[in-house]
Amino acid sequence: MNETIGFIGLGNLGLPIAANLLRAGYSIAVYNRTASKAESLIAQGARLATRPVDAVTTGGIVATLVWDDAAVESIVMSEGFLEKLGQGGIHISMSTVSPETSRKLAAIHAQHGSVLIEAPIFGVAEAAVARQLLIPVAGPQNAQERVRPLLEAMGGQNIFDFGEVVGAATQVKLVGNFMIVSAVQTLREALSMVEKNGGDPKAVADMLTQTLFAAPIYKNYGRMIAEKKDAAFSQSRIPLKDVGIFKKTAEQVESPTPVSSLLYDLLSSGEE
C-alpha cells in the first residue's frame, strides 16, 4: 500500500469511495473541480491535487468518477495526464459513459503505454459506506488483477469480470441503469393508479415486492414511492443522462429502442 492512488471526482459517490480507500490504509491524492469537497479527506490524510495530473503517479493507478463522457475525456486529455501516467499506468474509469467513449480512451491510453480498466458502479452513497457496491469490470486481465484489491477496498462487495474487451462493463452498467429507471417509472405509474382509486399503495407494494417482484430495486423503490420518499431520484439528472446514453448506444447498432425512447421523452418532459 505504499504507492499513492489518484482519485478524481468527489461527488456523492466518489467522496465515500475515496474515504474507504483511506480507511483501508491506502495513500491517496485527490482532485475535484470544487476543491472544498476534499476537505474531509484532507483531514484524514489525503493529499490535495490542484490539477488532474497532480493526482497521477508514473506507472501508478488513478481512478476517475465524474459526470459523463465529456468529463472523463477532458481529464484524460488534460495537460500531462497521459504522459505522466505512462508505461504500466492504469486508469480505472468508474463513470457511467458510453462503450464508444471507453474504447476511444482505451486506444489513446495504449498509445502512451497505459491501460484503461472499466469499473462502473452500481450503488448509492449509503451502499458505498456499507461496502455493498456491485462493480462490473472489463479490460486486460493483468491490470484487472492489479486493481481488484483497490476495488474491494473502495467498497466492492461483488466484482464481476466481463472479460478483456473494453466496452463490455459499460454496456452492463447502461443496461442495469435502463432497467432501474424502467422499474421506477412502472412503480410510480402503478402505485399512483392504486392511490387515486382509494387503495393503499404501501400495502400493494409490500405484497408484490415480497412475492412476484421480490428484487432489491422493486423493494427499495416501491417502498420509497409508496411513502413518497423518492424525491432524490425524481429530481436527479442521472436517469435522463443514462437513458440517453443507452438509447444512443442501441441506435448505433440499429437495436430497437421503443421503451428507452419513451422513457427518454418522459424524462425530458419532466413527466417521469
Rank of each mutant, 00 (worst) to 15 (best):
residue 3 E to K: 01
residue 4 T to D: 04
residue 7 F to I: 01
residue 8 I to T: 05
residue 8 I to M: 07
residue 10 L to C: 03
residue 10 L to G: 02
residue 12 N to F: 00
residue 15 L to E: 08
residue 16 P to R: 05
residue 16 P to F: 05
residue 17 I to R: 03
residue 22 L to S: 02
residue 22 L to C: 02
residue 27 S to M: 02
residue 30 V to C: 08
residue 31 Y to N: 09
residue 34 T to Y: 05
residue 35 A to P: 04
residue 37 K to M: 01
residue 41 L to M: 11
residue 41 L to I: 09
residue 41 L to Y: 09
residue 42 I to P: 08
residue 46 A to Y: 10
residue 47 R to C: 00
residue 48 L to K: 12
residue 49 A to I: 07
residue 50 T to K: 15
residue 50 T to M: 09
residue 50 T to W: 11
residue 51 R to H: 13
residue 57 T to N: 12
residue 59 G to A: 10
residue 60 G to L: 07
residue 66 V to M: 07
residue 70 A to D: 07
residue 71 A to S: 15
residue 73 E to I: 00
residue 75 I to N: 04
residue 77 M to R: 15
residue 78 S to K: 11
residue 79 E to I: 02
residue 79 E to P: 06
residue 80 G to F: 01
residue 82 L to D: 02
residue 85 L to R: 08
residue 86 G to D: 01
residue 87 Q to H: 12
residue 92 I to D: 01
residue 98 S to Y: 03
residue 98 S to K: 03
residue 100 E to P: 03
residue 100 E to S: 14
residue 102 S to Q: 04
residue 107 A to Q: 11
residue 110 A to Y: 00
residue 111 Q to A: 14
residue 112 H to G: 01
residue 114 S to T: 13
residue 114 S to W: 00
residue 115 V to Q: 13
residue 115 V to P: 04
residue 116 L to T: 03
residue 118 E to T: 10
residue 119 A to E: 06
residue 120 P to V: 10
residue 123 G to L: 05
residue 124 V to R: 11
residue 125 A to L: 01
residue 127 A to T: 07
residue 130 A to D: 14
residue 131 R to K: 15
residue 136 P to L: 03
residue 138 A to W: 09
residue 141 Q to S: 15
residue 141 Q to T: 12
residue 142 N to P: 02
residue 144 Q to R: 13
residue 146 R to P: 01
residue 147 V to Q: 05
residue 148 R to K: 09
residue 149 P to V: 12
residue 150 L to A: 03
residue 158 N to P: 00
residue 159 I to C: 10
residue 161 D to V: 10
residue 162 F to E: 02
residue 165 V to H: 14
residue 166 V to N: 10
residue 169 A to Y: 10
residue 172 V to P: 06
residue 173 K to N: 07
residue 174 L to T: 10
residue 174 L to P: 00
residue 175 V to P: 00
residue 177 N to E: 07
residue 179 M to F: 11
residue 179 M to R: 06
residue 180 I to S: 01
residue 180 I to H: 10
residue 181 V to H: 02
residue 184 V to L: 00
residue 185 Q to N: 13
residue 189 E to Q: 15
residue 195 E to W: 03
residue 199 G to N: 14
residue 200 D to Q: 10
residue 200 D to K: 08
residue 201 P to L: 08
residue 204 V to P: 04
residue 206 D to P: 09
residue 207 M to I: 06
residue 208 L to V: 14
residue 211 T to K: 08
residue 218 Y to M: 15
residue 226 A to M: 05
residue 227 E to F: 05
residue 229 K to E: 11
residue 236 S to V: 12
residue 241 K to H: 13
residue 242 D to T: 12
residue 250 A to R: 00
residue 255 S to T: 10
residue 255 S to L: 04
residue 255 S to I: 02
residue 256 P to I: 05
residue 256 P to G: 08
residue 257 T to M: 12
residue 259 V to T: 13
residue 261 S to P: 13
residue 262 L to R: 06
residue 262 L to Q: 09
residue 263 L to N: 07
residue 269 S to I: 07
